[in-house]
Design a protein around this nucleic acid. Structure first.
Lengths: 230, 230
DNA sequence: CCAGAATGCGAGCGACCACTCGTGTTTGTC
DNA sequence: GACAAACACGAGTGGTCGCTCGCATTCTGG
């Protein structure tokens, strides 16, 4: 016989205005302000522990301890360990969408290649340095299937955006070449991100510049003279 | 009270001519042909299981089952799970040294950049497609410390080799720039390797070519006209 | 102020897994 | 053939970790 507990962890935002309609299952569970605070605490603690240990090596007890609560309290708000990573991933994905929306959306063919690349790289790297967990969750080989799906979805979205950007810069190019080029660009960025994150200060800045150089030099010869060479 | 078992797993090659000298601890344990065969079997099984599950998710029982032996038999030849990965890593490292010795050693400044890059990339990619475990062991975030050390050692060695190659091509370049460039090159290669391994056939070949393109276009502008432009 | 819900606790349960041990079988040696 | 050593087995052990349960405490609506 199962308990009817928890089951509602991904509910921050939409805090009020419960929907009492629909089929009679999964009844609300009103959340108090204290609970919302606990959830934020737990997610922050989880982020910290995931960063240092990786997902599967991180124990739920360690997360609870880091958050200063008991294991039981953790499971008051999350049905299982995976749900913590899911919620963390969802929140990051949400903020990510805000960021890369600005970073890649404006496919203005007037802007020169160097500026476009520099702006996109800067934004993405800023996001990853602000949220180190993101890198851990997206690059861990031991992550639960659901997060891997989110990663794949993000990856596909990014490739799609880059494809759009590329095909507006290189109009007469076969689709498969555009797709491949987009994948290569994203791969270059990921490799560069790793290098950037393992360095500090001036050295880090130098690597950021190198990533931009690699991308620009890779893309420049493709467009003939259509890519504004400033 | 400890058992005096096993403790000798990394001993293939040097099969005969035991050294009965030295301090009286760790007595030999002569290995029969059957045992050598089992070790090979187990390593192959471990490679297979590591590839599909990753290191920490792979259970020793699963490895034994894959090899068609009992868990006890596995521990007849390896003191623990980590030792299996170590031995596997050592063997791969050995073959790797043979490969990259040929791939990066000849720092002949006469060969044009494109050829040097193409040769190195081809060899390394061939090695990784022949030994998929290598990629798993070197990129897993959940690997034991000892393998991580081996990975770091290999990484440093490779960076050193690339530095040598670069500074012979770009003589009047500050050392820190050379080092950074070498790291970037290796990063590009690794990212490319991942792309290559996730594709098959003609698509794979196309990605191989792209990796070469990225490296060449990245390095070409650095050397002024010293880099032979064919 | 007082039910009832939400929150909080922490010992403990069950499952899994690396690893062991007692015992039986094969192989090499004299 | 006899003895020892290497090999093989697989049920079992200890420890870890995700997760639970009964109960105490705090909040909220009426």
């Amino acid at each position: 016989m199962f308990v009817n507990r928890v089951r509602r962890a991904g509910d921050n935002h939409v805090p009020d205005t419960e929907k009492p309609a629909s089929a009679g299952k999964e009844q609300p569970r009103r959340r108090q302000a204290r609970g919302e605070r606990r959830i934020a605490q737990l997610l922050q603690a989880a982020a910290s522990v995931f960063c240092t240990s990786g997902y599967s090596a991180a124990s739920t007890n360690a997360i609870a301890r880091e958050a200063g609560v008991s294991p039981g309290t953790l499971y008051q708000f999350f049905p299982n360990k995976e749900a913590i990573a899911i919620e963390l991933g969802d929140q990051l994905m949400h903020r990510m969408r805000e960021t890369y929306g600005e970073a890649l959306a404006p496919v203005d063919p007037a802007t020169p290649l160097e500026e476009a690349v520099a702006a996109a790289v800067d934004r993405f790297i800023a996001f990853n340095t602000e949220h180190p967990v993101f890198f851990t969750l997206m690059h861990g080989t031991d992550i639960p299937g659901r997060i891997a799906e989110e990663h794949d979805a993000l990856h596909s979205t990014l490739v799609g955006r880059i494809e759009g950007l590329l095909s507006s810069l290189l109009p007469d190019t076969p689709q498969d070449v555009v797709t491949r080029t987009a994948h290569v660009c994203l791969g270059i960025y990921k490799a560069g991100l790793e290098l950037v994150l393992t360095h500090e200060g001036a050295e880090r800045e130098a690597y950021v510049q190198e990533v931009k150089n690699v991308l620009i030099r890779y893309l420049e010869p493709l467009g003939g003279d259509r890519l504004g060479r400033a």
